[in-house]
Design a protein around this nucleic acid. Sequence first.
DNA 1: TGAATTGACATACGGTACGTATGTCACCAT
DNA 2: ATGGTGACATACGTACCGTATGTCAATTCA
Lengths: 198, 198
Amino acid sequence: MAARRRIDTMEENRTKLLAAGRKAFAAEGFASASMDELTASVGLTRGALYHNFGDKKGLLAAVVAQVDGEMAERARAASAGAGDAWEQLLAEGEAYIAMALDPEVRRIVLLDGPAFLGDPSHWPSQNACLQATIEAVENLVADGVMRNVDIEAAARLLCGAALNAALWVAASDDPQAILPRAAEAFRLMAGGFRPTPH
Amino acid sequence: MAARRRIDTMEENRTKLLAAGRKAFAAEGFASASMDELTASVGLTRGALYHNFGDKKGLLAAVVAQVDGEMAERARAASAGAGDAWEQLLAEGEAYIAMALDPEVRRIVLLDGPAFLGDPSHWPSQNACLQATIEAVENLVADGVMRNVDIEAAARLLCGAALNAALWVAASDDPQAILPRAAEAFRLMAGGFRPTPH
DNA sequence: TGAATTGACATACGGTACGTATGTCACCAT
DNA sequence: ATGGTGACATACGTACCGTATGTCAATTCA
């Protein structure tokens, strides 16, 4: 059997640690996750962790970037399936709401991420969700589908509303029942950005 | 000089610890705040802390409740000064946005609170801000100033939008410049809940 | 009034976790 | 083949939390 190349095993170990971090952070939260247990669970030691990610927060940052990227991907997929441009924006927002049902997203990206890494705007991952919304709003304003509103401000409010509603849905006793109520209110409120029929 | 009564010194120590916790959590964040330093800074030891608040999170919960209460107070004051009922709701929202400029509010209530104490809906303080908004929306819907929308959902979205916009404002390089943009977009979006003229 | 008791807080201790400094061994270049 | 590099393991120091135990002043009661 051919000797495994050095670079390959390193990439493999990085991936293993990332996956373990994702699982541990989602299950126990960043603060309670033990790096000893985490690394041991994939047959490594803390040495590998500190070599690959610098420190505990470095691993969190990497996990956040990964999950954040997947969220943007999901949002794109959701908007692609919708009808006109306005419906696509709404679909994107509703997709965010639905995403927060995912414990990984909620715990890692929405709670521990901001608390331990600081404001999402300054993340290297640039908060992919927000970026996508900004682009969408940009186009909608250009096409006259939305009023001539401050692009970033509108995107921020839409994302914030969606994500906060999502936290509500996720923390409730019966998420499935709450979800449509949140989605409906979101559609309504977002309508505030549409031009008045005059 | 009359001997200090036991109950008095205890109340005083509780207050001192609360104030110290508030300062330390705001400055360093919950995770990094050392209970040894914190208690020493007010001339006590960890013994006093654990006797009064149970554990570190107990102190955080107490601090959160205090700040949360003050936020509700500020919101009430803001809405009281506004014109009609609709303007009062908007004023409340804008007050939340302004509040998140306060480092204590941002760090303690918006970031560390949810991360370490769980969803604000389940806090003993009941998330006073949200409660106030719910009541406001309730009245507005009853009076026909707002459409017949799901009360809690609408309140959640309004609060979420405002608070998230606030995080943006606070994290930006020039908060004073961003604030009006956020406030304006908020007014616009909230308008989505108003009845359509016709 | 003085002894007993309570309880608010201090002190001492154990356990755990992080980050770093150092060691080691496989892999790569020359 | 040999020396070097670097990915990772090991060992250590430090910090911190939570608890168990001690202590002394304030209160209570005879």
